[in-house]
Design a binder for these strands. Sequence first.
DNA 1: TACACTTTCCAAAACGTTTTGGATCGCAGG
DNA 2: CCTGCGATCCAAAACGTTTTGGAAAGTGTA
Lengths: 338, 338
Amino acid sequence: MTLKRVAEDLNLSVTTVSRALNGYPDVSEATREKVREAARKVGYVPNRLAQALQRGTSEAVGIILPSQFGHFEDPFFLELLVGIGERLHSANLDLVVCAVPEGPAEVDAYKRLVEGRRADAVIIARTRRHDERIDYLIEQGVPFVTHGRAETATPIAFIDADARTAFRRATERLIELGHRRIALIGAPEELFTAGERKTGYEEALRAAGITFDPDLYAVTRLNERGGTAAAERLLGGDKRPTALLCANDAIALGALRIARRLGIAVPDELSIVGFDDLPMAAQAEPPLTTMRQDIRGAGARLAEMVCARLGGTAIADLQELLEAPLIERESTGLASQT
Amino acid sequence: MTLKRVAEDLNLSVTTVSRALNGYPDVSEATREKVREAARKVGYVPNRLAQALQRGTSEAVGIILPSQFGHFEDPFFLELLVGIGERLHSANLDLVVCAVPEGPAEVDAYKRLVEGRRADAVIIARTRRHDERIDYLIEQGVPFVTHGRAETATPIAFIDADARTAFRRATERLIELGHRRIALIGAPEELFTAGERKTGYEEALRAAGITFDPDLYAVTRLNERGGTAAAERLLGGDKRPTALLCANDAIALGALRIARRLGIAVPDELSIVGFDDLPMAAQAEPPLTTMRQDIRGAGARLAEMVCARLGGTAIADLQELLEAPLIERESTGLASQT
DNA sequence: TACACTTTCCAAAACGTTTTGGATCGCAGG
DNA sequence: CCTGCGATCCAAAACGTTTTGGAAAGTGTA
């Protein structure tokens, strides 16, 4: 059902019908009502493509889903996606998703998205320190917002958890509990957030006069399997840490499993801290101490920010750092006296 | 950069440029090369919206993400999404995702998608026995494929795990191991697959001359929390089952947790079986016996099917039932003699 | 009566493609 | 010289909308 057909039925011009439906003031209330009624009755729905073509915008935002993140172990992305999707939907924007293997294909996918005018703006998640996707978008002048920061020449619109502060506080708390040998299982170093987490951890150590021990630092992928691997290495050695700070709840849960397998009591012999506060964290055995991040909320905010960006809001007004408070449960406790 | 600009640069008509790029035979090889070269040099990318409008197709398929499924506990959807997305991307189709709360908003979202010509076809996941989304799409004549079957008047294109056979086999195996009191934690009954699973279970019981005991049947949501709740009920009673068949790995993991909390040894006192074979299943303590389902593969196949459907393949040729083989690990064993 | 101003409507252009239905030219065959 | 034909090219219409720049009719004012 097209505008033309509705217009013919009513013996009006398409112009008038269009303007009636779009709330222009130059159509009488009587005809506006007639038009609304007729449109409703025949089930008229505007053709998105025609609208988009005419307006020169596609009313859609794109996001790339690196397939690697699709894995079960990493529920982060779906949660973010739902947050973004819901909010965009209520703003009457479509969300175009491309799943591509991580690597050069990613930038290509963004290219197809923006150069084919399929999306007015894009969202980037899991930013890397030096991110070609961001470089490309800046160069092209495409509006975008990111979840996570990056090292860029010009400022970008982002939302991010303040992982540095969170990790500093968590480390301070562990020190307060008497821990001295605190290990960090960090994220892959190309991720911007990896540096933040490590910095926060180091700041707290330094403030307490503890020197950073490279043997107490491991890097691994952000999933449970990564956690088990790293924990095996760290806990298998002779200078075993008394506390384990994990980049992720998934990693922390993996570490918890290893501790159990090795017969290390948590929290009596080993304290473990995660990040994210997944629902599973509270149900772990013992319930996991972690830093809370509202991922779905961040997704919703990201969607709002992308709308704002499209509406012309300045980048400087679209940079948000979210607190990630420490939720103390039962996986942390006083350091053992050994 | 538009077709017109390219044409002007070359002193050709837009017609010729268009036809040159699209491989029509009525343009000389010499001009075709010139056009290709010029287009490449100025970075011409066709405007998807204009193409879509003209062709009357949007080159996109839609999928609705019920927000409820976005939850961390249920990684199913993301995996499916990645499978679908990758394959569609390589077929040069866009994937438009809407996240909406489950309920009437779902059908509305599909309406917006198809009536606004935003998608040529749609994919439905987690089908319900009586599914308004499907009814609507059939009525509208919109091509669609589903993950999961449904009770419909006319046949539909679907892909689904053969949960009935899988659950029958699993139950048979438990009976073979000496179990008599086998409980089932099923999915919410409005889901089509819930009935399939229960039927398979009942078939095996009947064949072994065991009568179905309603006290050994619980229904719960398909996530870990659902599993803990249902297991608490089933294991707390006096006529405790010796085996637990779960609709889901997530549920099974929840049940495992409850067994541990109640001090019930797995598998010595209680056998537990899941479904999906999430990566986590193999790493559970003890490693979970489960039925394997390749969700990402199903997603890819779903994408192929939707392409086939758009290409005119008959519905009858697009109905696939996938085997879900039993993977025996250490959460199952001989029935205890109590 | 003429003028200006409002209100209400509309024809036509535009967005960037694809496709239809020729038009033009050169050349071979009669 | 005319006809027919293949090889190239192109103008214009079409897809469904929004927007521009009026036009027509009504209303009050001088």
